[in-house]
């Protein structure tokens, strides 16, 4: 009996639908709480090629929701472990592993090799990146995100439909991950499974694809709502014209008269604005220390307060700075707003 017999029996699938699944290529960006269940159902359904992209390693704290991983996998690359596990589930499927983050440089080139992108990411930067790259390569993507007990779901850029920027034109620095807020494993399980369902509907050309709509789910309340979204053609046109718009998340610092020294790497976010904010990454301190004022108090910060503490030690011991003060709690404690 065929492995796919039970789904081929459905009129929405049939032998033709199964052939469509076998010819389909789906890229999963982020093999975490959303990506794991999605990958399992897509592999089970016999999607021909699945790309598994994740640069992270399995952590013990992932296991309650990232259902592809086991205790013995802790410390191993998620994308590699996922491939090994899924190959045992269905050897018909070709898996491609990407142990690297999606970046402005690689996004279009990787995405154009697939039919659909499934978003399993946990940050706004990558969501906007997927969105823009999908606009430029003309691919639909299935979005989901969660916050504590709530989830959002939609299909973007499907047959010229609305995109993520049509819902959220402005990016935000409130990048709050599951690590920070906590989450019950079942919630990404539900959302990731719904994402897989949208992918299957797109491939099969069956049912109603969730395009032009944002579905909101509150697992604890047991409530659901669907919001209609319209296209903002100007947002899409901007990307078509100028290419991927990198998300630089800026912010203001509380005291505009105060000198600050940001010792984080240049890509770290958010980026404070202001004339009195110096950005010198740790590695450049010894070559650029002369840019730092030494006659007035300078607050030194990084993401958490640890690197900035080390930076102050270096600047004090090697270059004689005595006017530096560490921002103990990191950048979040000095942002205005």
């Amino acid at each position: 009996m065929s492995r796919y017999d039970r789904q081929i029996k459905l009129t929405d699938v049939g032998p033709d639908g199964q052939a469509k699944l076998r010819n389909a290529k789906v890229l999963i960006v982020g093999v975490g709480g959303l990506g794991c269940p999605a990958a399992m159902y897509l592999a089970g359904a016999g999607v021909g090629k699945i790309g598994l992209m994740d640069h992270d390693k399995v952590d013990m704290s992932n296991l309650h929701r990232q259902v592809l991983f086991q205790e013995t996998d802790v410390g191993r690359p998620k994308a590699v472990v996922a491939k090994e596990r899924l190959e045992k589930q269905n050897s018909d499927v070709a898996f491609e592993v990407y142990e690297e983050p999606l970046t402005i440089e690689n996004a279009e080139n990787i995405i154009k090799q697939y039919d659909i992108v499934l978003d399993g990411t946990d940050n706004f930067e990558t969501k906007y990146l997927i969105n823009d790259a999908c606009i430029l390569t003309d691919k639909p993507w299935v979005f989901a995100s969660i916050y504590k007990n709530e989830g959002q779901l939609s299909v973007f850029n499907y047959k010229n439909g609305p995109t993520y920027r049509c819902v959220f034109p402005k990016s935000t620095r409130q990048n709050i991950s599951c690590e920070a807020t906590g989450v019950l494993g079942v919630l990404p399980g539900i959302l990731g499974t719904l994402q897989a369902a949208e992918v299957l509907k797109i491939i099969l050309g069956a049912g109603e694809v969730l395009t032009g709509k944002l579905k909101l789910i509150n697992m604890m309340q047991g409530s659901e709502q669907t919001i209609n979204i319209n296209k903002r053609p100007e947002e899409i046109e901007k990307i078509r014209k100028h290419g991927i718009a990198p998300v630089y998340i800026d912010c203001d610092l509380k005291n505009k008269e105060q000198w600050y020294l940001d010792v984080r790497e240049v890509f770290e976010q958010p980026k404070p604005k202001g004339k009195k904010v110096l950005s010198i990454p740790m590695g450049d301190l010894t070559s650029r220390y002369q840019e730092i004022p030494n006659n007035q108090e300078v607050f030194v910060f990084c993401q958490s307060g640890k690197r900035s503490k080390n930076a102050i030690e270096i600047l004090k011991n090697e270059f004689g700075f005595h006017n530096l003060k560490n921002v103990e709690g990191g950048i979040e404690t000095i942002i205005d707003g």
Partner: peptide, 22 residues
């Protein structure tokens, strides 16, 4: 989704922040 509309009696307004988690 619309922020320009003038509200009328009985309207239901939803305030939707973006979520990042996954």
């Amino acid at each position: 989704l619309d922020d320009t509309i003038t509200l009328k009696d009985g309207d239901e307004v939803a305030l939707l922040p973006p979520f990042a988690g996954g």
